[in-house]
Simulated assay, not measured.
Amino acid sequence: FWTETYGGPLVTPLTSASRAFLDNPPKDFSETSFLRPRGAINIGREDQEDLADQFLADFADSGLAMERWSWEKSISLSPDLKPVWKHAIYEPECCDIDVAALHAAYLRDAKRKSVELICRAPVTNIRKKDDAWELVAGDEMYRATILINAAGAWADSVARMAGAKPVGIQPYIRNMVQIESDPPSSPDMPLVVGLDGSFYFKPEAGGGYWISPHDELPTEPCDVAPDELSIAIAIDRFEKAVDVEVKRVTRKWAGLRSFAPDRLPVIGFDSKVADFFWFAGQGGFGIQTAPAAAKLGGAALLGRAADASLHAVDAGLYAASRFR
């Protein structure tokens, strides 16, 4: 999903600046929008009014569209919500992202621009020689003037190989589960998020839901599998939030979210190692901030002025040079 509060107020400018591209992309990139209106309700129990107050205060200066709702108003969109959820904040601008279509469009665009995609080629050695980087991946050696470290959860590992100081990128596991439910979901229901950070869920095609315990399990960078305890916790929290019975699990999966210590993206040249460029720490908001983050990174990489769409973005917040 795309929602401007996700990631906190310091990430909001990147999310907001990405909307125009996602909603109305250039015709040579995509003929259709990647966004579909969804709406989001952030909910709190009767004893969590302070969380609702703090949520509103955090974004008070952002200009984001928000409405404080009661439980009675919330069930107009999420009719199975239990009465315990007395406090709610509605975000009307929240949208679904067609991630599969967006990813495919990025790959097509890269191919048109002569990008060569090389898979199943682990990087085993990086060194600087004659003012150029030499990188061994798989059975091949590659040379480049500038090395861009966009290795996600492995960003610190790549930095170490290149002789750069790691910035503290920490990978976390996030678990997801799709379920069949009774009653089934309605396709027009909103995303529902616990203000205490303990769950979120939204309807899925076919009348089910996908749900998450909103977990962050620290791990080393690796390929991850869903955690059975986390899946059970997700289902338990879901059934405590709504009068809905989980009939069966239809799919479960897990992925990695990687954060810098201040939980903001790391974009720009390393402060100590020449020609080493960071593009990392996108957390769980990477897909919804990708257009703006890419424009910001491209400008920093090429020494150009930032795109006009980034007028509200403070590039210094995300600069890699903040880690010295």
Rank of each mutant, 00 (worst) to 15 (best):
N175Q: 03
I179F: 03
E204R: 09
W154P: 14
S114R: 05
V224R: 02
M161N: 00
A162R: 04
V123T: 06
G163F: 08
N149R: 03
P218I: 07
M161K: 12
V224F: 13
P221L: 04
A137H: 07
G208R: 00
G163R: 03
Y209T: 00
P184A: 03
R120T: 00
T219I: 03
V224T: 12
V167C: 14
A150D: 06
W210E: 11
W210C: 08
I169M: 08
A205N: 12
A159W: 14
D223T: 10
E180D: 14
P213R: 15
E216P: 10
H214Q: 13
P221Y: 14
P221M: 00
E116A: 11
Y172T: 15
E204Y: 10
R127G: 12
S198E: 03
T145P: 05
C119I: 14
K111L: 03
D156C: 09
A137I: 10
W133R: 05
E216C: 04
M161S: 05
E180S: 12
S186Y: 00
G163Y: 13
D130H: 09
M161R: 12
E134F: 11
G208A: 10
T219M: 02
L147W: 11
R160M: 03
F201R: 07
P166R: 01
A137C: 07
R127Y: 09
Q170F: 00
I211C: 06
N149F: 11
E140S: 01
Y200N: 06
P203E: 07
Q170K: 09
H214W: 01
S181M: 14
K165V: 11
G163C: 08
D130S: 14
K165T: 15
D188Q: 09
E220M: 08
L195R: 03
S114E: 15
V115N: 10
P221G: 11
L195I: 06
A164M: 04
I126P: 02
A121K: 13
L191S: 04
I146V: 15
P171K: 04
A162V: 01
E116S: 12
A137M: 04
C119F: 15
D130F: 00
T124Q: 09
P171M: 05
S212N: 08
L191G: 00
P184R: 09
E204K: 11
G138Y: 06
K165C: 04
K129V: 12
A155M: 10
W210H: 11
V192E: 12
D156P: 05
K165H: 11
A155P: 13
S114C: 06
P187I: 14
D156L: 00
Q178R: 09
S185W: 12
N149D: 13
E140L: 10
P183N: 09
A205Y: 11
T124A: 13
M189T: 01
A121W: 09
Q170H: 05
G138M: 06
V158M: 14
R160I: 01
G208T: 04
I169R: 03
S114Y: 04
G197K: 02
E134H: 15
S212H: 05
G194K: 07
P190D: 08
